[in-house]
Design a protein around this nucleic acid. Structure first.
Length: 551
RNA sequence: UGGGGCGUCGCCAAGUGGUUAAGGCACCGGGUUUUGAUCCCGGUAUCGGAGGUUCGAAUCCUCCCGCCCCAGCCA
C-alpha cells in the first residue's frame, strides 16, 4: 500500500522503501519521553512526527515512558505528559508503556550477555572509569576486571540487584572495545546501582539499566520498526545496533535521527525550564510564557496551531533555529478562523454622546465572527456613555487621515458594529490629563453609511460605560530579550525579559465575556487573541491572558 | 587533534547531473475591508570556498573553511 502522496522527508523515504522491499509489514513508532519534566514545543515536533508517521503509513505509535532513572522521575510528570499528548490530539495503541515494565526482561538479557562473555562487573569507581576511558583523541585501556569469569559477574550482578553492594562500587559493563574511536563503544555501563525507590517499581530494584541498554531492547519488545530520535543520539546508534545484534531480541528495530527544534527567544531545555520554575522566575510549568505544552495551552494557543506549526517544520538533519514568528503565524492563523470576536477596552476613556437621549439604551447585535455565521451573534448594549481606548483619541488634529485612523476633535470615526460618532470637546483635569470627551453620534448609521460629507477616519472598538464588565489583562512577551539566551558567556537568566508579563487592570469588556470559560479563545477586536485564565480569575475578577497580539 | 553529522534567499527549507533553483515565515509595494486584522495580487538567492569531471553540476570527485554532537555509574 504505497498510495502515500510522495515521501517528503528522509524518514518517510526510508519507511516507504522498507515497506516496498517487504522488510517491514506494519510501521510501529514510539514517542519515548523520560518522565522528568513537562513536555515542551520541542517534544511536540517529535510527537507530531512519530504519531504522524504511524498514521500516514497505517501503523501505530506507542507512548512509552523511558523511566530508567528514578532519580529525577515522578508520577506527576507521567500524568502531565499523558494529558499533554492527548490534548495535542494523539492517541496510542492500548495503555502507555513503561521501560520499567521491562526491567525483568532487561535483567535476564544482561545475564545473557555475561554468559556470552560480552559483559562484566567492573569495580572501577567513577573517576577511575573516566581515566580508563581515554579521551577524544586517545584510546582507552581495558579495565582490570574485564576478564572476570562469567559466573563471578553473574553472582555479583545478583548481589548488586538485591542491594548487597554499595552505590558506586560496581557497575555492569558491556565488553566492546576500549580502543573504539566512538567513545560510546568503550565498554559502556549498562547497569548501575541506585538504592532509590522508583515511582513505579518502588523498592523492587537496587540497580537500573542505562539508556543505551534499555532503548533498543524496549523498541524490540514493542515491535517498533522505526525508532526516531534527535541528532544528539547519532553517536549512540552503533551501540544501539550492538545490542540489537548481540541479544536474542524478538525483532530488530532501527534508529534514525532528525534535527531537534530550536526556537529563538525561548529555551527548549528541560533542565533550564525547571530552573526558571525552581527559582521562581515563572509561575510554574504552565506559566503562559513557558514553551511547555501546558504553558501554551494556558496561554490560549490551540492544539491545532501547535500541530500546524510542527507540520510546517522540515524533518532533516540540519540543526537550525526557527524564528518564533513562524510559530506565531500558525497561532494567529488558527485563531483567526476559530476565535469568537469581542470588544474590550484596555485603557478606558469615557465619551459622552451629548445628542443621544439621556437614559435611553438600545441593544445592537454584532457578528460573532466576520465570516462565520455558525458562531452566535453578540448583543451589545449602546447608550449615551461609552468607553473607547485612550490610544484611539488624539488632540493632535494635524495628524493625517492615513496616519491616524482614529478619533480627533471635529472629526468622525465609526464605532465598530454601532454608530458613527464625532468628537466635539475634550475635558481635562487640573494636570492636563484628558478625563472625558464630549461627542455626538450620527443617527441611523448602524449598519448604514453616513450621510454625504461625513467621512469616518476609521473604525474603533468601544464598550458601553453602563453595561460593561471589569477585567484584568495579562499581556505576555518573549521570556528572553535575545534570540539565543543560551549562547555566549554568562547565564541565560541574564537575558530574562523584565517585561515578559505586563498586567493591565480595570479594563472594560463587553457583557458577553462574563460567560467566558477557560479554553475558549476570543479575539478582542483590534487588540489580539485572549482567553480566560482559570488560575488567576476569581468570581469577582476576570483575568484574560493575551495569547498573541494582532499583527 | 579521534569519531559522527551538517552547510541552498534575513529564518525554516524543497531539490537524488539538464527546473526560469519549489514552498512557508519575515520584509517591501499595491488592492479589498465597519478589526491599521483577515483576504487578494506583486517583489526579492546561482546554491560555504577553491579546483576538477561533464555537452551540462546546488546535485559527482578533490582539497579547504565553518557550525553542531560524543570523553554521565543522565536521557
Amino acid at each position: 500500500m504505497t498510495d502515500i502522496e510522495k515521501p517528503s522527508n528522509f524518514i518517510q523515504q526510508v519507511i516507504s522503501a522498507d515497506l516496498d522491499a517487504g522488510r517491514v509489514e506494519t510501521v510501529i513508532t514510539r514517542f519515548p519521553p523520560e518522565p522528568n519534566g513537562y513536555l515542551h514545543i520541542g517534544h511536540a515536533k517529535s510527537i507530531c512526527l512519530n504519531f504522524g508517521l504511524a498514521k500516514q503509513f497505517g501503523g501505530a505509535c506507542n507512548l512509552r515512558f523511558d523511566d530508567t532513572n528514578p532519580e529525577k522521575e515522578d508520577d506527576e510528570y507521567v500524568q502531565a505528559i499523558i494529558a499533554d499528548v492527548r490534548w495535542l490530539g494523539f492517541d496510542w495503541a492500548d495503555e502507555p508503556k513503561f521501560a520499567s515494565d521491562y526491567f525483568g526482561q532487561l535483567y535476564s538479557w544482561a545475564q545473557y550477555l555475561i554468559g556470552e562473555g560480552k559483559a562484566y562487573i567492573c569495580e572501577l569507581n567513577a573517576e577511575q572509569m573516566r581515566e580508563y576511558r581515554g579521551t577524544l583523541t586517545e584510546k582507552g585501556k581495558n579495565s582490570p576486571y574485564r576478564e572476570r569469569p562469567a559466573e563471578e559477574s553473574l553472582a555479583l550482578l545478583e548481589q548488586m540487584k538485591i542491594g548487597a553492594i554499595d552505590e558506586g562500587a560496581m557497575t555492569l559493563r558491556a565488553k566492546i572495545d576500549m580502543a573504539s574511536p566512538n567513545i560510546n563503544m568503550r565498554d559502556p555501563v549498562i547497569y548501575r546501582i541506585k538504592k532509590m525507590a522508583h515511582h513505579r517499581t518502588g523498592e523492587a530494584w537496587n540497580i537500573y539499566p542505562s539508556y543505551d541498554f534499555a532503548h533498543g531492547q524496549e523498541d524490540a519488545i514493542e515491535g517498533v520498526t522505526h525508532s526516531v530520535c534527535t541528532l544528539e543520539f547519532a553517536a549512540n546508534r552503533p551501540l544501539y545496533e550492538w545490542f540489537t545484534s548481540n541479544l536474542p531480541l524478538p525483532t530488530t528495530p532501527h534508529q534514525y535521527e532528525f534535527g531537534r527544534l530550536n526556537l529563538n527567544y525561548t529555551l527548549t531545555s528541560k533542565r533550564k525550564l525547571k530552573q526558571l520554575i525552581d527559582e521562581n522566575h515563572v509561575d510554574g510549568w504552565d506559566d503562559p510564557r513557558m514553551p511547555t505544552i501546558s504553558g501554551l495551552r494556558r496561554r490560549g494557543v490551540t492544539a491545532a496551531a501547535v500541530r500546524d506549526f510542527c507540520d510546517s517544520l522540515a524533518v532533516a538533519k540540519t540543526d537550525g533555529v526557527v524564528d518564533i514568528a513562524q510559530f506565531e503565524h500558525f497561532i494567529r492563523d488558527d485563531l483567526n478562523d476559530t476565535a469568537r470576536r469581542a470588544m474590550c477596552v484596555l485603557n478606558p476613556l469615557k465619551i459622552t454622546l451629548s445628542n443621544y437621549e439621556q437614559g435611553k439604551e438600545e441593544m445592537l447585535t454584532a457578528a460573532g465572527h466576520p465570516n462565520r455565521d455558525d458562531l452566535p451573534q453578540r448583543e451589545l448594549p449602546f447608550g449615551r456613555d461609552i468607553y473607547i481606548d485612550k490610544n484611539d483619541f488624539s488632540e493632535d488634529t494635524t495628524l493625517s487621515r492615513k496616519k491616524f485612523k482614529r478619533l480627533v476633535i471635529g472629526e468622525y470615526v465609526r464605532l465598530r458594529g454601532a454608530y458613527v460618532i464625532r468628537a466635539d470637546e475634550v475635558i481635562s483635569d487640573n494636570s492636563g490629563e484628558i478625563v472625558e470627551i464630549v461627542g455626538s453620534y450620527v443617527p441611523d448609521t448602524v449598519g448604514e453609511n453616513p450621510p454625504e460629507g461625513i467621512r469616518p477616519r476609521g473604525v474603533i472598538h468601544w464598550v458601553s460605560a453602563t453595561n460593561a464588565i471589569d477585567c484584568d489583562l495579562y499581556l505576555y512577551e518573549n521570556l528572553f530579550t535575545v534570540p539565543a539566551p543560551d549562547a555566549g558567556e554568562g547565564s541565560f537568566l541574564d537575558h530574562l525579559n523584565p517585561q515578559s508579563l505586563q498586567v493591565v487592570t480595570n479594563c472594560k469588556a463587553e457583557l458577553g465575556l462574563a460567560n467566558a470559560v477557560a479554553g475558549e479563545q476570543y479575539q478582542f477586536e483590534r487588540e489580539g487573541y485572549y482567553c480566560l485564565d482559570a488560575k488567576y480569575s476569581s468570581s469577582d475578577k476576570l483575568v484574560f491572558n493575551r495569547t498573541i497580539a494582532l499583527r
